[in-house]
Computed example of a mutant assay.
Amino acid sequence: MSIAVLDKASPAASPSPSRRNMFAGAASVAASVAAVSALGSTAQAQASRTAGHKPRGLTDADIFNFALNLEFLETEYYLRGLTGQGLSQSDTGSASGEVMGGRKVQFRTPMVERFMQNIGRNEARHVRFLRSTLESSAIARPRIDFTAGFAGVAQAAGLGADFDPFADEVSFMLGSYLFEDVGVTAYKGAAPFIQNKDYLQAAAGIHAMEAYHVGVVRSSLYRLGPDVRDKARKISDLRDLVDGPLDLDQPIELDGRANIVPTDSGGVTFSRTPQEVLNIVYGQAGAGIMSGGFFPDGVNGNVQVT
């Protein structure tokens, strides 16, 4: 199945560690997350935290280009899993980076495949929408490495050395869960800094779409039982470990109950700063990280580190 069938609607850089050292300290994920859990999160605390991370001197276009990096990552993931192919060059820009890893998933459950196809269509449209909005200022697709990225995730999160998100539909949904939750928090974190109301409205619409996506993924994974819920918890703990000191991320099961929508005590979902987002996709904790994980050469555009 081709992409046409899938979507018919037309500071100083820190050295990147090797794959063996990716997500340093991963053996102590549970202890590290527990150590910061007492910090909690409230809407007021989040507002205070993100207020100091406004990308200085950056335009709305810079923020949209930052989002485009993430949309490239998500779209290439879904297209490769659903069709065995990625975006065409007309959608990736000139001198776009190569994409390593990924293959067509053999789905066993038609409903799951339909859900993933729906999400994949949406993500491809996000790429095209952002590129058409940005026009000549749109970045090209950066180099993406699913093989190294997921190998690091599997090792650090304790998913097993043989974890492959393209091996089966459940693994594919777990890989989707890794990305979709990050997309929701990234768009929410960027919203306060967008000046143009048209851009803000568009970002809000994409944020809502990403939230719909992760709601489907989280609920689908929850229904698969304790073993899958535990794997999803490990991914959540890993995101929490590398993105910063606050215990913000939430698994799909919390205190023995379904936790499909992660919110604080006020029913508000949390935000991530650009650096927190980059730490997750680069697979490294700390400030000033410039590359690694899924983006071996870093992301493109003016939002690099904050």
Rank of each mutant, 00 (worst) to 15 (best):
M1L: 10
L6S: 10
N21L: 15
F23Q: 06
G25I: 09
A30L: 12
A31F: 09
V36D: 10
Q44W: 10
Q46H: 04
Q46T: 07
S48E: 15
A51Y: 09
K54W: 07
A61E: 15
N69M: 12
L70G: 08
L70C: 09
L73N: 04
G93W: 13
S96I: 06
M100D: 05
R103N: 09
R103H: 13
V105G: 00
R108V: 07
I119T: 00
R125V: 06
V127Q: 05
R131Y: 14
A138E: 10
R141S: 10
G149S: 09
A157Y: 05
A157C: 10
G158M: 03
G160A: 08
L174Q: 05
G175P: 11
S176I: 02
Y177S: 11
E180K: 13
D181W: 02
K188M: 06
G189Q: 03
P192H: 00
D198C: 04
I206R: 02
E210V: 02
E210H: 05
Y212R: 13
H213G: 02
V216F: 15
R223S: 14
V228Q: 00
V228I: 15
K231F: 03
A232L: 06
L238A: 04
R239S: 01
L246Q: 09
D247I: 01
Q250H: 06
G256L: 14
N259V: 07
I260P: 01
V261S: 08
V261K: 11
V261M: 13
P262F: 08
T273R: 02
Q275V: 03
I289M: 00
F294I: 07
F294C: 00
V299D: 00
G301A: 05
G301H: 04
N302E: 13
Q304N: 09
